[in-house]
Amino acid sequence: MYPVTLTGRDVTLREFRTDDVAASLAIVGDDQVTQWLAFDRHDQAATRAMIDGVVKRAQDDPRTEYYLAATAPDDELIGFARLGLSGVKAAKLGYAIRADRWGKGYATDVARQMVTFAFEQLGLHRVSAAIGPGNAASIAVVHKLGMRYEGRLRDHVLTKGTWRDSLLYSVLVQEWTA
């Protein structure tokens, strides 16, 4: 399915464009944000490569991921969300919001839109999220979405040269629609 545009309460999710590199660098180039992601801080070249890859993969048929830019009401790019299709009717959810926009409910809006899209448009059965144990804000987001804690993934993410555990949460379609 291409292109995808999802409109939430405060945030619109849309396909990335090649001109999103500078705005994306404010997110993936920030140590404060990337401390919670599965990759280290990016420089301009790495950000360009990331966006070029996202734009190219959006054209794949079938799609293996939905990596969408999150924009605020003023159309400013403030984050992103990703659904990585990870198996039979399942996806892994990820999201990030620019640090200066934290605490405004954007992450919850973004995550809710992606889970709704996963179940209502893609017909998936399960969505999971792996979160760093110290990321209390993201843990609060998945709790708001009704995701259930499943366990700890030991040494799950290599970031800044160190292995980090992740806490695994998930929601099933019948729990989402209840």
Rank of each mutant, 00 (worst) to 15 (best):
A70R: 08
L145V: 08
D60L: 12
L85I: 06
L172H: 12
R14V: 10
D52C: 12
V141K: 05
L145P: 01
R41K: 10
Q32W: 13
V157F: 12
K104E: 14
A136R: 14
T34M: 05
D31I: 01
R126E: 01
E120A: 14
E120Q: 12
A46R: 15
V142A: 09
R63P: 14
M114E: 09
Q44L: 09
E175K: 01
I139G: 12
Q113N: 08
T7Q: 12
I131E: 02
G161E: 11
I97A: 13
K144T: 12
S166C: 09
K89T: 05
R101D: 01
E120D: 13
D155L: 00
V11H: 02
M50Y: 03
D75E: 15
H156E: 03
G84L: 04
D165K: 00
W163C: 05
G105R: 14
Y66V: 02
V142W: 03
E175G: 14
K160C: 02
D30M: 02
D52V: 04
Y106W: 02
Q59R: 13
L145T: 03
G79M: 00
T12M: 05
M1Q: 01
V127A: 10
G87F: 06
E76C: 13
G134D: 03
L25G: 06
G53A: 02
K160H: 14
A107H: 11
A38M: 10
V115D: 04
V157R: 11
V11Q: 10
E15M: 05
N135E: 04
G123P: 14
A130M: 08
F39V: 06
R126I: 03
V11D: 10
L13E: 01
K56Q: 15
D43T: 09
L85S: 08
A99L: 03
A26C: 07
F117E: 08
L6Y: 13
L124D: 01
A136T: 11
A38L: 06
A136P: 11
F39G: 00
L145S: 10
H42T: 07
L168K: 02
T7W: 10
M114C: 02
A38H: 14
R148S: 10
K144F: 06
A96V: 04
R17G: 02
